[in-house]
Structures are given as structure tokens and as C-alpha cells.
Design a protein around this nucleic acid. Structure first.
Lengths: 218, 218
DNA sequence: TGTACATCAGTGAACGCGCGTTCACTGATGTAC
DNA sequence: TGTACATCAGTGAACGCGCGTTCACTGATGTAC
């Protein structure tokens, strides 16, 4: 068995080698360049250089492909959040780096954002250990750790976590969807805005927590 | 001139009376029911009971209709923010009601959200007194007032305003795009989550501002 | 090592569909006199 | 008040297009013996 045929599956007459992977990659490029809405299976096939019916051997439908993309995107973001948190012991700092990972991943891969946050049929059937749930779990745990260390306000941690999530998510979407590009004070200042926002948010939580303690001691 | 023909333009053979308005209304209903992406001029015309070519007498293209919708949506949201702020003198409370107006409007009119935050060609040509700019201005002014009253952290007000905007915007999008519906802790608790988020945010800012003053006095 | 055969992963034609947009048209409306 | 005429706001046919999906097919691959 000549291994050459395995190492160079680039241009094969019939069998592609890893068409499934190639279709996914092409889909990512297309989503990045022109958005999810206009993604068509036929164009994906065209990009890969394969007949428009070929993708159906790998994906049941356009929607099925998009769900695979969403899982990939959530998994990648979740990994980056976990990696960012690894080794960071100070809870406030951990919340910061986790939030920054969320924001930065979205900034670096706008096509992921397009695919992750999109209403689709069967969205409610998310298992609790789906990639999407795992990503949120990282954020939640970082918030919880802050709270337990007295570095965040008291109260229902779920409510706090939603505040943190809203903050980073809104930041991401405002950049992704365009509004900020039109405002001179913001355009081109992504990093500055991101750091100020995250740092002020953390500092505010700590200040409120401290105030709570002070007034409890009084 | 019989005024009856003016008062009952409901079913006219040819001239509709106010087709432009009717098309816009139908478009809102369609966007609400099935999203912007799938909105077609032909379906809008069909809903109104008019030939598919008729809309071209009122809108240059599908895109032109969508831009009209976006302006309407921003104007409506801006009005609600202004109305909410009217008469509220305490700056913290004003920021709260303005933020709540943003969130509530988006919740009540999800079709507005779909149309407002959407990349489109020529988005950068927003005039500074476009409805969209005006909506942001309400938020910015509320933030600025807090800062001047010592109820928000010091620093660049634009950066603070972006934090506030991100917070409410993220909240809105997380509900609109579905993720929260899948999380039992959140689903069905919109109002509770909204108030907690906005109140904690305000309280955190005040706590940080106070802390800043304390450490400056030391 | 060689061969028969099942399975896999492509092809290409075809189906039906709805879309945006254009165009020549015509019925209804409003205005000048 | 009545009439001629310009303008407005619809109609309906047509153009070209690309889409999702199905289907019978066939070339390539891998496995049992």
C-alpha cells in the first residue's frame, strides 16, 4: 500500500480524502467573508471543487452543517477560555482573563460569532455538556470564585454571571455588527476599550463587595 | 369631492391610499415572525395584497426598505429612552431608567433589534443626528451626568458609556438570540434579571466612585 | 499475492421553487383653464 | 361646473438566476478468502 496516496490527497479524481473537513473549512471562509445568511451548500461545494450533490454524503442539510460549525466554534471558544484561566489563581484576575478570552476569540473569529449566536430549530435541546454550555460554565465558575473570595457582590451567582456575560457579549456584538465603527471615539481602539471595560467592571465589583462588608460591620 | 373615498381607502381597485405605510407595517410583521434574513419584497407585497412590482414605486430596493425600517426602529427606541429619562433628576436613577428603556424596547420589539443591528452597505455614512446616534446620545448623557455627580468612576466618559452600552446590549442580544432560553436559571426571569443587573451595575459604579474619593482623601 | 464483491463517495441531470428587478401597459387621480 | 391632459400608482408578463434536494449512476476503495 503506497502511503503517498494518503499523504497527498490534494487532487484525486474521485475520492477527496477528507471532503467533510474540506467542506467545513470552506464554509468557515465563506461565513467570514459574506455572512451566515447567504451561505449555501452549493457554494461550499464549488469552493472545494466538488459537485453540488457531494456534500449530502457528509451533511444531511445546510442546517446540519451550520450546527456542526456552531459546535466547533463553541468548543474553540471554550478551550480558549479554559486555557486563559489555567494557572491564574487570583479570582479577579481569572475573571478578567476569561472575559478577555471571550472577547478576543470573538474578535479574532467573527465567523464564529455569526454561527454561535443564531436562533435555530432544536436549540433548546442543548445538553448540559454541549460546547456552548461548557463555555458559559467557565465564565460562571470565574464569577463564583470571585464571589467566594469576597471580590464580587453577594447574591445569586447566576444573576452576577449574567451581568458579566452580558457585558462581554454586548461588547463583542457591538463591534461585530458595526455600530462602533461609526463612532470615532471607539473605532480603532478595541484593545483599549476592552481592557478598560473589563478592569473597571472588576474594580466596581470589588468596591461594592467591600462596601457591603463595611456596612455589615457597622 | 366626497371625503368618503379618503376615509375608507381600505379596498380600492387601483390606488391603495397609503401603500408605503402598509408595506412598512407588513414588513415589520414579517421580520418579527420570521426574521430579517428571509424577508423578501415579494412577500411583503403579497401580504398587502398588491402586485410584486408595486413596492418599487415606494422603495428603490429591498435594502432601501430595510434602511427605512432601521431608522424607524432607532427613532422609536430613542424616543422611549428620552421619555423614560424625562423628569428623572437623580443621575443614577436616570441611568437606570434609560438602560431599562433600551432593554425593554428591545424585548418588546424584537423585530426592531433584528433590523437595527445589522451590517449594511453605507452604514458608516451615519450622520451625527441620525436616529441611531440620538439613541446612543441619551445613554451617553446619562452616564456623563452620573460621573459629574460623583456617582460613577472617573476617567474617559466614552469608555464608561461603552461599558454601559455593552451591558444592556449584551443582555438584549442574549435574550433575543436564544441562549438564555436554554438555561433554566434564566428562562422566564427576564424582569428579575434585568433589574438586578441594572441595579448592581449602578451600585458598583457608585461604590467604586466612593472608593476613589476615599483613597484620594487619604 | 490475487481475485470477487460489497461498500463508499463521488457525478451530472433534473425537479420545482421563489427571488429581485425591469418593462410596457393602464386605470385612477388631480390640476389648469 | 366641465373638460383636457399630465401625472401618479398600480398591473402582469417576462428575464435570468441560484437555490435545496433527489436520483440513478459509476468510479474508487477496502475486505474476505
Amino acid at each position: 500500500v503506497p502511503t503517498a496516496s494518503r499523504q497527498a490527497p490534494a487532487k484525486r479524481a474521485y475520492h477527496h480524502g477528507d471532503l467533510r473537513r474540506a467542506l467545513i473549512q470552506a464554509a468557515w471562509r465563506l461565513v467570514r467573508d459574506q455572512g451566515v445568511d447567504t451561505l449555501t451548500l452549493r457554494e461550499v461545494a464549488r469552493k472545494v471543487g466538488v459537485t453540488h450533490a457531494a456534500p449530502y454524503h457528509h451533511f444531511e442539510s445546510r442546517e446540519a452543517l451550520l450546527e456542526v460549525l456552531a459546535d466547533e466554534a463553541f468548543a474553540a471558544m471554550s478551550d480558549e477560555m479554559a486555557e486563559a484561566a489555567a494557572g491564574v489563581t487570583d479570582p479577579s484576575e481569572r475573571l478578567f482573563v476569561v472575559g478577555r478570552a471571550y472577547v478576543d476569540h470573538a474578535r479574532a473569529r467573527p465567523e464564529h460569532v455569526q454561527v454561535m449566536f443564531r436562533r435555530y430549530p432544536g436549540m433548546k435541546d442543548q445538553s448540559p455538556d454541549s460546547p456552548g454550555s461548557r463555555a458559559f460554565a467557565h465564565l460562571f465558575e470565574a464569577v463564583l470564585a470571585c464571589q467566594e473570595a469576597g471580590l464580587a457582590p453577594s447574591g445569586d451567582p447566576w444573576q452576577l454571571a449574567l451581568s458579566a456575560w452580558s457585558l462581554v457579549h454586548g461588547f463583542v456584538k457591538l463591534w461585530a455588527d458595526g455600530p462602533l465603527d461609526c463612532i470615532p471615539a471607539y473605532a480603532e481602539n478595541f484593545d483599549t476599550m476592552r481592557d478598560h471595560m473589563l478592569r473597571t467592571f472588576g474594580a466596581s465589583w470589588r468596591a461594592l463587595a467591600q462596601q457591603e462588608r463595611a456596612s455589615a460591620a457597622r
